[in-house]
């Protein structure tokens, strides 16, 4: 009886598993199909002739390497900028006393719920007045400053024991030394969680690049695949090959740093 119950649970779960993984299977299958097989009916999950040609064609017709590199540069610098400035601010909010601290922190908190969609219009106008339309700065900087990063790290710093810092302070260490030598090494899990969130925010971002990027060579990979749709129409094999390329980093990092993804989203409840 007990075993039967378990078996049913697994069967239901496997059914869900097929539904959840099915689209990925379809993606991979289509990416390796020849054009002739794309419209085969009934559709074939495992095509007769597997081919790498789709990837070669997508890489040859478009600067896919360039788009990919753009996304990597933007994601890395955005994440780095967020980690450095947020951790510094979070340290100040968590540990240092200064007049106005609470007020400034409340302003940060109040902007936590501001959707990007509300500020995107003035942000575009500001970028335009800086002459930053179609630049890396515009892709990197606005995303590097968000209140959530500061808030998450502050919460993390508050859980760290104070005793180490206090003894360092008595030994004459400066605040900067305490921050770099004691706080940051202890905060590695918090920093890793924020990095993973920042990676997702940045790599998957679509609306902002869509607004701020005009020229082909500045496309991020996500923006680029959305544009392929217009070139390829029904050449699903090519479109899926390009989509697969855009997805691979996410899936790879997810496999490597799984717990941080789960942690980052389950504990903070952060939607990205």
């Amino acid at each position: 009886m007990f075993k039967l119950k378990n078996l049913i649970k697994h069967l239901v779960l496997i059914l869900f598993l097929v539904v959840m993984l099915g689209p990925f299977l379809w993606l991979i299958s289509t990416a390796f199909k020849q054009f002739g097989d794309v419209f085969a009916y009934p559709p074939k999950i495992i095509p007769n002739n597997l081919t790498w040609d789709n990837f070669a064609r997508v890489f040859n017709s478009f600067s896919l390497v360039r788009y990919f590199t753009n996304s990597v540069i933007v994601t890395l610098l955005r994440t780095l900028g967020m980690l450095i400035t947020s951790s510094m601010a979070a340290y100040a909010f968590a540990r240092l006393e200064f007049p106005g601290r609470e007020k400034i922190f409340i302003i940060y908190l109040a902007t936590l719920m501001i959707p990007f969609q509300v500020v995107m219009i003035p942000l575009f106008i500001i970028m335009r007045s800086f002459g930053w339309v179609d630049t890396y700065q515009a892709l990197i900087l606005p995303g590097a400053f968000n209140a959530l990063g500061v808030f998450l790290l502050r919460q993390f710093f508050l859980t760290l024991p104070k005793s180490l810092e206090e003894s360092a302070f008595i030994d004459g260490a400066s605040y900067f030394t305490i921050f770099t030598r004691i706080i940051l090494p202890l905060a590695k899990p918090g920093l890793a969680t924020l990095s993973v969130l920042s990676f997702l925010w940045s790599w998957n971002d679509f609306l902002w690049p869509l607004i701020i990027i005009d020229s082909d060579h500045m496309n991020t990979i996500t923006l680029a695949i959305s544009k392929f749709q217009g070139y390829y129409f029904t050449e699903w094999n090519l479109l899926m090959a390009a989509t697969l390329v855009a997805l691979i980093p996410t899936i790879f990092i997810y496999i490597v740093a799984q717990n941080y993804f789960v942690e980052g989203i389950a504990t903070s409840g952060a939607k990205y």
Binding site: A89, V119, L123, P142, A144
Partner: peptide, 28 residues
Amino acid sequence: KQAVAGYLFILPNLIGFMIFVFLPLLAS
């Protein structure tokens, strides 16, 4: 000294936050 350190530590983030979050919000 602690207060000065506090301001210096929040400054890089605060400047970015003001330009890219707070100012656009008021502007909108």
